[in-house]
Design a protein around this nucleic acid. Structure first.
Lengths: 304, 304
DNA sequence: CTAATAGTGTCTTTTAGACAATATTAA
DNA sequence: TTAATATTGTCTAAAAGACACTATTAG
């Protein structure tokens, strides 16, 4: 309908576009980086007991500078014919061989100095995959992908109330320090991340900062911390956790996944009531467990 | 600690970086676009009645191709020395003159053809400003910024259950069609946006599509729809709405803001219980309203 | 007095938390 | 039989929904 509008140079849109020259402004590279989570079972000695579960993140050891030898999130540059999401899916497929998984855009990190080489933004994604699909990548060609056990603990919390003199009104600064510890066999990567929430009259500014970092490349400690907070936050009011389950699972297994993500134990009865609407019964049961068999459930696709 | 590691070419990190050449891969431009919301009061005839409230979005009429004459979100390209957030803040200041407001990153839109000129990603932000600060920008130099009344209505909802033969398992497709209507005086911008949620065994894919669009530039209808959904979703469990209030406000005013955002009326008693922990009393009251005075509150900064 | 909003009390319903009782299995 | 988990029931506590009653003001 606006076809024949002409701009101040007398050009129609078609004419403008055909004569358009991109100009030589500096442009950033954009990478899609992925925080891929899964929950794995640890080996259990007692044949009767159920195995414990642990939250794991996939990392790749860098074989090139910068951060040579450090561990990084899987990811790669976005190409001009794809979306960031398509780039993430492509990398995911390459790195894990897995195809149809839950994928959610997290945040675009854009501090200009986050990559020492050049201006690179990271559009980060969180992927959830079920451990039965986890193809433990035997070190292929260049880089090796490894699952790291994840621990993310609040180490310190601090609130400061500040009477702001210049501007009227109060200001509160809430600071939380988290320890992120990733381990695989004898490799332990440890970072301290600070989350600072500054509230004033109208503003609320949240800021993450890496205080210490040992072995993780770039600002990936920050990205992983951000992903863990998102995961924790959404698990309680969405069906996110269901995406980490195999096709059929027991309610106890599902509860374990919730517990690992939330970092606390839940009451069985209350848990079952709460997630009842997210699952549906199958006719199968577990067998040969040394105790009463458990009904298997699957994710319910219908219903809200 | 990894200082002296050398890569396959025998270079240390410092050597590598000093010899680093960016290469000539194609890079995208990245823009920071903002969905700026405020809630304004309509004029009320009856001196006793309280004014109604309406949700408004700030748009700018484009004076250049492409989408010449269409209305677009305020925004601009990110510069190499700033974060996307800094770019958003800069544009916000330029466009509205307002400085310290609530700002939250929404989503990075990256469809390669979203800008007909060249490859441009949009890192979108939502800003909330209080209407008392709204400087009704008298059309300045180039482009004029105008507040548009917002209506976002679910027009159609549809669920399809599909038995997937090739792959085992079910698939459900939930489709929602929304009408986005933005109006200012006699200008009415109308778009239809489709939200499609496809659930399979492990995957949940959500996709927004513009079905119809009249007068909004680029994919901005999609971005506004996304922002409205985020706003609605977070209002119920955060203090987001408080960022749209003036320094002091009555609880009824706050309730009106909730109601406008949620698009439904709330019960007074229940509402007050729910938000009690987010506000604190002042000693002031409204006056000359033709009815009982109302206590003024302010946003509480302490406490969770 | 009136027409409006302000503010609170209370009953009901729903949801969450806590814990206990009973069921079932492989070795 | 035993040591484990599975499953359900029930009581209590807290939160949400619904509604009604009382308070206060400018004109």
């Amino acid at each position: 309908m606006k076809k024949e509008l002409r701009d101040r140079n007398g050009l129609t849109e078609a004419e403008y576009l055909s004569s358009y020259e991109p100009g030589d402004y500096v442009r950033p590279s954009v990478a899609a980086d992925m925080v891929i989570f899964t929950v794995m079972e640890t080996e259990e000695e007692n044949y009767r007991k159920l195995p414990e579960k642990e939250l794991e993140v996939l990392l790749i050891q860098r074989g090139v500078h910068p951060y040579l030898g450090c561990w990084a999130l899987p990811g790669g540059f976005v190409r001009p014919d794809e979306t960031t999401e398509a780039a993430a899916k492509r990398e995911l497929k390459e790195e894990t061989g897995v195809d149809h998984v839950y994928l959610e855009q997290l945040y675009t990190f854009s501090e200009p100095e986050r990559d020492p080489r050049t201006w690179v933004m990271s559009c980060s994604y969180m992927a959830l995959i079920d451990s039965s699909k986890v193809w433990v990548s035997a070190g292929d060609d260049a880089d090796q992908a490894v699952w790291f056990r994840t621990s993310f603990r609040l180490m310190d919390e601090h609130i400061e109330y500040r009477k702001n003199m210049t501007y009227d009104g109060m200001k509160t600064i809430r600071t939380k320090r988290y320890e992120l510890e990733l381990s695989h066999e004898d490799v332990v990567l440890r970072s301290m991340i600070e989350k600072k929430i500054v509230k004033t009259e109208h503003e609320t500014v949240t800021e993450y900062r890496i205080l210490e970092n040992d072995g993780l490349a770039f600002d990936h400690a920050k990205i992983i911390a951000y992903a863990l907070e998102r995961l924790k936050g959404k698990v309680e009011y969405t069906d996110l956790a269901l995406h980490m389950m195999p096709k059929e699972f027991t309610l106890t297994q599902l509860q374990q996944v919730y517990e690992v993500i939330l970092g606390k134990t839940l009451l069985k009865a209350a848990f079952r009531r709460k997630i009842a609407h997210l699952v549906e019964e199958t006719d199968s049961f577990t067998e040969n467990e040394g105790h009463r068999p458990s009904r298997l459930f699957r994710r319910k696709l219908e219903e809200e």
